[in-house]
Amino acid sequence: MNDLADLYQELIIDHSNRPRNFRPLDAGAPSAEGYNPLCGDRVTVYVRMDGDMVADVGFQGEGCAISKASASLMTESIKGKTRAEVEALFSQFHDLVTGVGNPPREQLGKLAAFSVCVTFPRESSAVPSRGTRFARH
């Protein structure tokens, strides 16, 4: 049961029950939909860029607690960052949840909470699996 408490820690429960930026952006804002037919997760991410910077980001969709919390924390983490910063963060986060290398935790901030996903193979929905299809709109 202890590993359950690690997985469903307060931060993750909080973000899955009260997801931040859980809304579409104005009509016309670029969006992309991700769908994983294996687990049924479906997420649409909306983003508004200001030059090279993420000015606003929102998401909608459905999935397990880990899936929803990771989307919520993702939107918090990338707002205000440049495209290059976001890509670097994505790379570090992907390494963290797939157990590759040892990415710097301080740069990941709250996202480091998902490190426990490595030990839950079935709960790796925070990581787009090979079954996940993303389509741009």
Binding site: L4, Y8, E123
Partner: peptide, 11 residues
Amino acid sequence: HPHDAGTVLDR
């Protein structure tokens, strides 16, 4: 979500 309940029940 069923997968969360499933994980908990599994444990």
